[in-house]
Simulated scan of single mutants.
Amino acid sequence: MSPASDERRAQLAANLAAVRAQIERACERVGRSPEEVTLIAVTKTFPADDVRLLAELGVRDFGENRHQEAQEKVAAVADPRLTWHFVGQLQANKARAVAEYASVVHSVDRVRLVSALRRAAAGREHPLRCLVQVDLGDVAEPGGSGGRGGVSPDQVAEVADAVATAPGLVLGGVMAVAPLGAPPGQAFARLARTAAEVREKYPKATWVSAGMSADLEDAIAHGATHVRLGRRLLGERGYDR
């Protein structure tokens, strides 16, 4: 390993230790076990070498939000121990390609996309896990940015039903991004209520994907089972990479 690789590994190891400690503290405050929270490293714009280093440090879940970058990175890393999560907005015409490498799609927000994913999953060995992305814009304060993608809470049941009844798909639960201009705790409390409504009908849909670098503690306090971290773990992104 080169000196630069050694330095990057040490940096990632320190960041990972700090993140895990933060997750532990957040769980302790609300009486949860850290084992209930899965860390997803969101590696968009970062190289495949960072994925390999994080894998060496014990990270097993990785998230990408751009199909082309994800496809290339999965092929470059080629590590069967890893679980790949697609966390970005997904066009229906990219569903088949994404289903070739992703184990989980976090951003299912319409019935038409469910239909595309159902067709895409037809040849898979294992079912494709899908999360319904919830738009939390209704909790944004005046002057805020509103929602950041997803289906409105009153339409979640329709999309969840479509996933749950589609061959080759498994309804995993829900996902959301806290809207800008709203207290994260308020947003994630709204998501928790929606997640509970989904579980009432589908008890195995237990995943709540919520919380990023700036708001993971609020997400954990409101039941997040998966947190998606990029900057806190990998550093500032260089979008010119």
Rank of each mutant, 00 (worst) to 15 (best):
L136K: 02
L136Q: 04
G137V: 11
G137L: 04
G137N: 03
G137D: 06
G137C: 08
D138V: 14
V139C: 01
V139L: 06
A140C: 09
E141Y: 01
P142M: 05
P142N: 07
P142I: 06
G143V: 00
G143K: 04
G143D: 06
G144M: 03
G144S: 00
G144I: 00
S145M: 06
S145F: 11
G146Y: 05
G147L: 00
G147C: 05
R148C: 04
G149V: 12
G149N: 13
G149E: 13
G150S: 05
P153S: 04
P153L: 04
P153A: 07
P153T: 07
D154A: 11
D154K: 08
D154P: 03
Q155E: 15
Q155K: 14
V156M: 05
V156Y: 01
A157G: 11
A157V: 14
E158C: 06
V159F: 08
A160C: 13
A160K: 03
A160G: 06
D161A: 14
D161Y: 05
D161H: 15
A162Y: 07
A162C: 13
A162D: 05
A162I: 12
V163G: 04
A164S: 14
A164I: 12
A164Q: 14
T165V: 10
T165L: 14
T165M: 13
T165A: 15
A166C: 10
A166G: 06
A166H: 07
P167G: 12
P167D: 14
P167R: 12
P167S: 10
G168F: 06
G168E: 05
G168D: 11
L169K: 12
L169P: 01
V170N: 04
V170Q: 14
L171A: 09
L171G: 11
G172Q: 05
